[in-house]
Each structure stands twice: as C-alpha cells, then as structure tokens.
C-alpha cells in the first residue's frame, strides 16, 4: 500500500514538472522572433507532450505524438521556413488587445474548471457510459486486447474512415497547392 502511494506521488510530480516545461517551451516558441528556433522548440514541445501522455496512461497517443509532434511536424516547419522567411518582423501595433482577449478567455475557462470532476476521479461521468462497456467487451467480441485499437477500428470505425478521408484530402490539397499543380501551372504560365 505504501509503495503504491509513493508511486502515485512520483507520477504526480513528474506530471507537474512536465507541465511546467511544456508551458515554458510553448511560451518561448511563441515569443521568439527567430522562426527557426520556434520550430525547434515546437519539436521539443512535442517530445515533452509524448512523455506526458505516457504518464497519463495514453501509450498509443504517446507513440503517435513522438512520431508526429517531434518528428514530422518539425521537418515540415523547417521546410516551410526554408521556403519563406527565417525571421519574423516586429508587429506594427502593441499586442494589448490580444493579451486582454487571452486573459479574459483564460480566466473564464479557469473559473469553469470548478465544475469539472477532480483529476483522476474514477467516478467522473466520462467513465460511466460507454468506456466500461468497451473495456469489458473488447477482448471477447474482437479478440484484440488493445482496447484503443478495438475502439478505433471497430466500435468507432466510421469515425476512423472519416479521419482517413480528411488525411487523404489534406494530402491532395498540399499536392495541388505546392506540388504537381503548382509545377504544371508554372510550366503552362511560363512565369
């Protein structure tokens, strides 16, 4: 029992430390004028996020985030920056209005968390509807022990089909914007 309590306490400490690092890297990524540095910080941010997902029991999400957030996103950002500009110009007007909007929205949201169930509460409404059913039935009905995979591909297969279509459409959009389409237009237009 004592050991279990200790493990839980360590989990909470790791969680809080990771959250601090996340806020620090996120803030630095936004405040820096050098876009190259921002993109690098975003990669570190993705890796920290992946570590946080492991602490929060979301191993499948951590896997995806480590490959996408820390890998592909950074590569794409760097490529886009290489094609545009490396430095951001100073904005012409001071950002007081944006700061006010962010603070007011943030304040309202923090106030609203008072109505949320406590972090890690097993009796929260989110855990009392379909989720226990999925966990109890997934192995018997599909023969797949990883409940996330079972829900993703079977119980919510329609959702996944939609997501795949979105990814496909996004890929085709990029291809037409700056890939094949742009090249053909360039050759045809002669400019």
């Amino acid at each position: 029992m004592d050991r279990k309590e200790g493990r839980r306490a360590i989990e909470i400490y790791i969680n809080i430390v990771l959250l601090f690092f996340l806020v620090a890297t996120g803030l630095a990524a936004v405040l820096l004028r050098n876009l190259l540095a921002s993109a690098m910080l975003l990669g570190i941010y993705g890796l920290l996020m992946a570590a946080l997902w492991v602490v929060l029991d979301a191993v499948d999400v951590a896997f995806t985030e480590a490959a996408v957030g820390a890998g592909i996103t950074t590569v794409l950002m760097l490529l886009a920056i290489a094609l545009t500009e490396r430095h951001e110009k100073r904005p012409s007007r001071p950002p007081y209005l944006a700061l006010l909007a962010a603070l007011v929205t943030g304040g309202a949201l923090v106030y609203a968390t008072g109505g949320m169930p406590a972090f890690g509460d097993a009796a929260a409404p989110a855990h009392r509807h379909v989720a226990p059913e999925y966990i109890a039935r997934a192995l018997d009905e599909t023969g797949v022990p990883n409940v996330v995979t079972a829900v993703l591909a079977s119980y919510r297969g329609f959702d996944t089909l939609g997501e795949v279509t979105v990814i496909f459409t996004a890929g085709m959009g990029v291809l037409l914007l700056i890939g094949v389409g742009a090249r053909r237009r360039k050759e045809g237009g002669g400019s």
Binding site: D57, V61, L76, T84, L152, T160, A170, G171, V174, L177
Partner: peptide
C-alpha cells in the same frame, strides 16, 4: 484501466492535425 475513448479520439486527431498543418504551411508558401 484508464478511459480508452479520449485516446482514440486524440490519436486520430494528432495525425489529422499534422495534415491540416501541412495544408496551412502549403498555403503560406503559396
């Protein structure tokens, strides 16, 4: 076990987010 449902939603959302980010960056380049 932790609730698997948010994991499913977010797992797909992460890959969708990088695809949409790519579209945004492509628009920026254009």
């Amino acid at each position: 076990y932790s609730n698997p449902l948010p994991h499913v939603l977010i797992l797909t959302a992460i890959v969708v987010s990088v695809s949409t980010l790519a579209v945004g960056l492509a628009l920026t380049v254009a």
